[in-house]
Design a protein around this nucleic acid. Structure first.
Length: 965
DNA sequence: ATTATTACGTA
DNA sequence: CGTACGTAATAATG
């Protein structure tokens, strides 16, 4: 058809509510799609789930609802069954196959972020009628997706019913006009017509011989069903007679098909806002349902967070079969050497990865000339896909004492050698040699972990050619699979070949060792080899994606070298003064207890101060204090800033301020106690050091993160907390700690990227940066800038990269929004190009679907196209921030690579032990302080050449706190 | 026994 | 109603 119904619609409405009849849609889907085509390997039918998702997705794409709800019937009768025992008799005979899918559909809705509602004693139809009415009252345009014609009575100017036509997929927009055209009666009269005609689908008899036509004729003649009944005697002929005989039935029908529009649903229309799917939950469910990636892409493209795959053509995940490798028996080093020469040396060309001099790439200006950079690693990645081998070690990771359980080498000809740890250790020279000559064609999953396991086997790791974990992260930085299985399920349309030759899409079961096997440490070599085959399959899938998205160089120049450095840092750990930590913990604990007692006294109750719920009861019920902001679950927040506000407002209320102050003190000291305790829990008993794990594929912007414990959030803002840094000390053989950090990297990046002359000059001048900027913004000399002016400008500068709103700025500075607005205007008037740059970031992200750092690292932002304002605004702030935060992260990674290299070239023992985003902490050996300080700050300053200098400040001391500057 | 919510530490 | 993280506790689910 030339004009679709949607193209005639006015611009997307602000508020559109979609109400879905869950059962009716599930029934329609079930009967429209052949079960045979939608069954999992265990024989579970999924046709209704698929059809439901597909239909919902289409409607969302076409109609752009801002709010969605799905209504379901609840088991057990409704008031209608009491009126009419045979009511929906035909439907209760629903096949088992379908009933089993209803919970799956509900799980899916949950994962997709769509609200569903059930109301015992009533039908989904009544819920729908109520929701539609609520929506209408709230000023929404409302759509009702239902295959039940009873819904037609709801239709008016604001409520449209989407009714599936003969083909399940084509939906008719039933507007008042459409109903009138089809049935010759207005929507309000439709139930009258249905009562006369009956409803076979619901097992409701009408007047024999009376169809739509006669029913409509009577209605138009007399006005309504009541009038018809009143004048039943005046209707002649056979049909009049039939009517008179069935008056009771008709009255009953009319009573039953009237929908209840005023149920108490315990929900507000605004609660139904469509926020978007939980992608990891969707993945999990879709894996269970055995929906492949293409299905997922199709079904998800309507959902915020799911559509980005349509921004660029996605290479078809060719239906890949993961072949079971042929496992060759290896009993000795001689066996392995023979196997290697037969299956690897002859098929894999000699090549090593030399990534000693990582190059800034993309549009960044290289810090030094590239003449000596070996980029052979980067030529023709696609060709390498043909003849590569896979190395896959498995085991448990505990830094310092990692326990490998197996090592698999998979050759390009699908022959595999699976070695037990003892044998692998025996063969370490052969394997190291293989890596040394053929590492340039080696694929792994998670190089950093592999390094730990290989080292534990005595094998010397070298940069592999490809890392599927890093690749997955670079290609889709918002998705982090937490296992190899999850990565396979996400990136591949898996078809794992089982032993008996049957193929199955259930990757999970076939890949996982059973728990008993794991416990016994007795792993099935077949499964181990199969997992190696998965790495190979992932490689084949991800290489072209990496090339297409220009992420391949990033992996080689930045991520792989960083993996190696991080592995070293994790292995080393950070030494701590355990006695000092214990002392601190006890002090913080004592102070927390004291604060707790005071709070209890003030409250006259020994409540749990760590329970927001109990706090709310005391603060807002007992003490009748006025709350500030609300939490998303409705209650007033009890966070620190709210407590402070309340303390200020209630200085005269002695009990209240006593309670508030004590509570704040309890929160603070208890938090510190917790942090110290978490550090103590992680001290390695063998070396007394804390070995954190740096996550390299978690933060979507390209930053690292730190877990078990998180050493990137050790307190630094107030004195009490900063003390904890004092417990980090140089270990045996080292004399001090050094801290080197970048000052205002993100602002410098903005200055460089925007080309704003004023901001660039502010950095080049070398003056007190914030004072200098304030002087420009306020147009007064630097020495006349007040403390307030400086701090306001400083907050503004820092807020820039977060997409700070004037409201937020006002709140932070405790000034009025109007004043904040003035500040913002003045700031952007002074630094116009910065403003321009930030807007460009967002608009380019909108066009391309992703943002890019200076070094080409991408992050996709599907939410920019969301019709939900909150989602869209959040995406815009993300798109503003990601390239800036990400570029800073890239720069620090380059600096780490340079610094690490410089330290090793210089032959010093001092080494990097921590990275905290813009800071490096080093452990300094005796007599090396000056040299190392020079080397590291040079490496950091020279990581990349910008139009502004990169300033690094360093400090040294007996502990981390004293190393601050 | 898992999942969500709240709060709070860092850059 | 500021981005990016990780952790711990309570409360709410199964």
């Amino acid at each position: 058809m030339a004009l679709s119904a949607t193209s005639l619609k006015p611009a997307i409405a602000d508020r559109r509510l979609l109400v879905v009849d869950g059962h009716s849609l599930a029934f329609r889907a079930y009967f429209a799609l052949p079960v045979e085509n939608f069954t999992t390997s265990d024989g579970v039918a999924t046709n209704a789930v698929w059809g439901f998702a597909s239909m919902l997705s289409r409607v969302i794409l076409d109609e752009h609802p801002t709010h969605i709800a799905v209504a379901f019937d609840v088991k057990g009768g409704t008031f209608r069954n009491q009126l009419l025992p045979q009511y929906k008799g035909t439907r209760d005979a629903a096949p088992e196959d379908l009933l089993a899918q209803l919970p799956l559909i509900q799980d899916m809705l949950k994962a997709l972020g769509v609200t569903y509602i059930e109301k015992p004693g009533f039908e989904g139809d009544d819920v729908i009628a109520t929701l539609a009415t609520m929506g209408e009252d709230a000023g929404f345009d409302t759509l009702v997706l239902s295959g039940d014609r009873d819904a037609f009575q709801l239709i008016d100017d604001k409520i449209t019913v989407l009714y599936p036509g003969h083909h399940f997929k084509d939906l008719k927009h039933m507007t008042p006009e459409a109903v009138e055209a089809k049935y010759k009666v207005p929507p309000q009269r439709y139930p009258d017509l249905a009562a006369l005609r009956g409803e076979t689908a619901d097992n409701i008899p009408g007047v024999p011989g009376v169809g739509d036509g006669f029913a409509a004729k009577w209605i138009n003649q007399f006005g309504s069903l009541d009038a018809i009944i009143e004048h039943a005697d005046e209707i002649g002929g056979k049909k009049g007679e039939a009517l008179r005989e069935n008056l009771d039935q008709v009255r009953l029908n009319r009573k039953v098909n009237a929908l209840v529009r005023d149920l108490d649903l315990d929900t507000e229309v605004h609660d139904l806002v469509f926020a978007g799917p939980d992608l990891s939950a969707v993945d999990k469910l879709f894996a269970q349902l055995e929906f492949g990636p293409r299905t997922k892409q199709r079904l998800l493209k309507a959902f915020p967070g799911g559509e980005h795959t349509t921004d660029e053509p996605v290479e078809d995940a060719e239906e890949c079969t993961i072949e079971n490798p042929t496992i060759d028996a290896i009993a000795s080093r001689a066996d392995l050497d023979g196997w290697i020469s037969e299956h690897l040396i002859s098929t894999v060309a000699e090549r090593t990865m030399s990534i000693g001099h990582p190059m800034p790439i993309g549009h960044a200006k290289p810090a030094e000339q590239a003449a000596d950079a070996d980029v052979s690693a980067l030529d023709d990645p696609l060709q390498s896909v043909q003849g590569f081998w896979t190395l896959h070690a498995e085991g448990t990771l505990r830094h310092g004492e990692s326990k490998p359980t197996s090592l698999t080498i998979l050759a390009p000809d699908h022959h595999a050698a699976v070695l037990a740890p003892s044998l692998a250790r025996e063969c370490h020279e052969s394997i190291s040699g293989l890596l040394a000559t053929r590492g340039g064609f080696c694929a792994v999953h998670g190089y950093k972990e592999q390094i730990h396991l290989l080292r534990a086997l005595g094998i010397t790791p070298v940069h592999p050619w490809f890392d599927t974990q890093l690749a997955g992260y670079l290609v889709e930085s918002d998705y982090h699979p937490d296992s190899l299985d999850a990565a396979v399920a996400h990136f591949l349309d898996v078809q794992v070949q089982a032993e008996d030759g049957q193929s199955s899409a259930q990757g999970e079961l076939l890949l996982d060792d059973t728990e008993s096997q794991r416990d016994a440490g007795d792993l099935d070599p077949n499964l181990t080899a199969r997992r190696a085959a998965c790495v190979a399959a992932l490689t084949r899938r991800l290489v072209p994606m990496m090339v297409q998205r220009h992420q391949y160089e990033l992996m080689h120049t930045i991520e792989l070298p960083v993996s190696e450095i991080l592995a070293g840092m994790e292995l080393r750990g950070a030494a701590v003064d355990r006695a000092r930590l214990i002392d601190m913990r006890d002090r913080f604990a004592a102070e927390a207890r004291e604060a707790q007692e005071q709070a209890w006294d003030a409250a006259n109750k020994r409540i749990n101060l760590q329970s927001p719920k109990q706090l709310q009861a005391v603060l807002f019920d007992d003490m009748k204090l006025r709350g500030t902001r609300k939490t998303k679950s409705g209650g007033y927040t009890t966070d620190a800033s709210a407590l402070q506000d309340m303390a200020i407002r209630n200085v005269n209320n002695e009990r209240a301020s006593m309670f508030l102050v004590s509570l704040l003190r309890f929160r603070e000291t208890n938090k510190l106690k917790q942090i110290v305790q978490s550090l103590l829990d992680e001290v390695n008993e063998h070396d007394g050091r804390i070995h954190t794990t740096f996550e390299q594929t978690v933060a979507a912007t390209g930053r690292l993160s730190s877990v078990a414990p998180n050493l990137q959030n050790i307190p630094n803002r107030n004195v009490a907390g900063r003390e904890i840094r004092g417990a980090f000390v140089p270990g045996d053989g080292y004399v001090s700690l050094m801290s080197c950090d970048y000052s205002q990297v993100e602002l410098r990046i903005m200055a460089h990227c925007s080309g704003d002359e004023a901001l660039i000059e502010a950095f080049r001048s070398g003056a007190d940066f914030h004072r200098y900027v304030a002087s420009l913004v306020y147009g007064i000399p630097m020495d006349e800038i007040t403390g307030d002016q400086r701090s306001h400008v400083k907050a503004m500068s820092y807020g820039l990269a977060y997409g700070l709103s004037t409201y937020g700025l006002a709140q932070q500075l405790k000034i009025s929004p109007a004043e904040a607005d003035v500040l913002k205007d003045k700031y952007f008037a002074t630094f116009g190009k910065v403003h321009e740059y930030l807007e460009t970031l967002v608009s380019q992200a909108r066009e391309k679907g992703y943002t890019e750092t200076m070094f080409g690292r991408r992050r996709y932002f599907p939410g920019l196209r969301s019709t939900n304002r909150r989602v869209r605004d959040a995406a815009e702030r993300g798109a503003l921030n990601a390239p800036i935060q990400g570029t800073a992260a890239d720069i620090m990674k380059l600096a780490m690579i340079k610094a690490d290299r410089a330290l090793r070239d210089a032959g010093v023992r001092s080494r990097i032990i921590l990275q905290i985003h813009d800071e490096l902490v080093l452990e300094i050996a005796g007599g090396e302080a000056d040299r190392v300080s020079e080397l590291v700050s040079r490496a950091m300053e020279d990581a990349v050449r910008l139009d502004v200098p990169l300033d690094v400040s360093t400090g040294i001391g007996d502990d981390w706190q004293l190393a601050a500057h």
